[in-house]
Design a protein around this nucleic acid. Sequence first.
RNA 1: GGUGCCAUCGUAUAUCGGUUAGUACUCAAGAUUUUCAUUCUUGCAAGGGGGGUUCGACUCCCCCUGGCACUACCA
Length: 526
Amino acid sequence: MERKVRVRFAPSPTGALHIGGVRTALYNYLFARQHGGDMLLRIEDTDSTRFVPGAEQYIIEALDWLGIEIDEGICLDAPNGKGDHGPYRQSERRDIYHQYVDQLLQSGHAYIAFDTPAELEAKRAEIANFQYDARTRLQMRNSLSMSAAEVSECIEKGEKYVVRFKVEPNEDIHVHDLIRGEVVINSNILDDKVLYKSADDLPTYHMANIVDDHLMEISHVIRGEEWLPSAPLHVLLYRALGWEETMPAFAHLPLLLKPDGNGKLSKRDGDRLGFPVFPLEFHNEKDGTVSSGYRESGYLPEAVINFLALLGWHGTGDQEMYTMDELIAQFSLDRVSKAGAKFDYEKGKWFNHQYLQFRTNEELAQMFLPTLQAKGIENADLEMVAKVIGLTKERVNFVPELWEQTNFFFVAPTEYDEKSLKKRWKEDSPRHMEELLSVLENVSETDWHTTYETTDDNGNTITRWHLDDVVMPWIAEKEYGVGIVMNAFRICLVGAARGPHIWNITDVLGKAETLTRVHNALESIE
RNA sequence: GGUGCCAUCGUAUAUCGGUUAGUACUCAAGAUUUUCAUUCUUGCAAGGGGGGUUCGACUCCCCCUGGCACUACCA
């Protein structure tokens, strides 16, 4: 019988969750859902010195925002973990690790070493490319080079020690990777990795990772490419523990690279180039830094998911827009690319633009409210906000950008754009506007907002404003230019030569406000 | 330095031995628009180099070059 698919996302709470980590979580999630398996979240907090308060909560909230659901382990509705394989925080699993460290010690796969960090440093300075391995371990202070009596004496004296994995030399280790195929590495290049440290009574990543993945019955380990070099060590550990039969399958994902130049994408790149590298804004209590987030920048979660999914994976055809359900249905590990993907922020913006168009005007209005408030627009009429958003949303990539497109609907212009004036405000404009004012004053409130369907010269159905029937004949009769009149009118209402169709603007503004603005413009201009 | 991974337009990628090497982003031009924007159309732009294998290679193999990752009592 096929083993049930169980995957895990296992971040360290050392700060905000990097966007690359988010993609790893996403691929794990897609894989789990596609196979009807479980998605676990485990917190790898074995390095107490790097712990950052709030980071764990941040991770949970970020995944929740993106719609990556956790079936087991630490999650929003179970902050201390749910499921039968807990605890799901490595710092709470000390007793479990002890047992397996002892097992390795007893079976001779590991040994105790007393070398202090200073001694190790000295050794590295003394010998170039020093490696703690089969060739050098007898020169060091450990249970292989010391007598049993000496060892117990050191331990009784309270000397700090570590447990190291005893790597047998000159053995080819085969790692089967679902994305890269067979990777072979000789054990000679592996050092005797530290598995456990008595100083804080915690295992290191490698030990904890293998024990947990085994005990939690993980079937597939999908993680970043930076782990590929240590995969052989992990295979050796499974073997030493007697778990090779149920060892999970490995898949090492390509890295997310800097948009320019080369190297791994980092927080600094985001700061430097002006885009977020984290899903949510994060205030780091430990170092006092603030990191901007996709959510706060106006990104829609579905856009981030779609964008991230395509950074390293692609379907068979030209499809680019994917819902989460489509991704779940179509994702496959063998279509994950092997090469690192440069982070193209422009494409991310485009995705957000696309998904913004799918949202209703009412939804967008709700999302736009905080921006309006920040601009001093209190008690905005939601219906009116939705209406102006409908007129302008295809012009923007992000919700906050709506302000630049709609501000004149909320605030009457007090300044008039010089370039627009130069080009569109002519000598006759004041007289034209005076006359337009009297033409418009005669339009009833009802007619002001009226539209009707008609056909154009090509027989297409178009919507026409009643105001056209009032203003256009007047312009024609006076033999004024349509452009010169309408553009001056626009400047009066907007303050510049931009914005949606003029009658859409007068419709939202209403008759009284429209006339007021023209009056004001006539007084202010020149 | 050592080991490993990787290599198609500027970017993300399609192609799983036979194509005028496709698509999207970006950029440019034109059309549309009484404004700005949108939209539409068109265009620019690629198989790192060298050897093989083959009737035929972007695709398979080798070498070189280049890029990246790892090389901690961090994950």
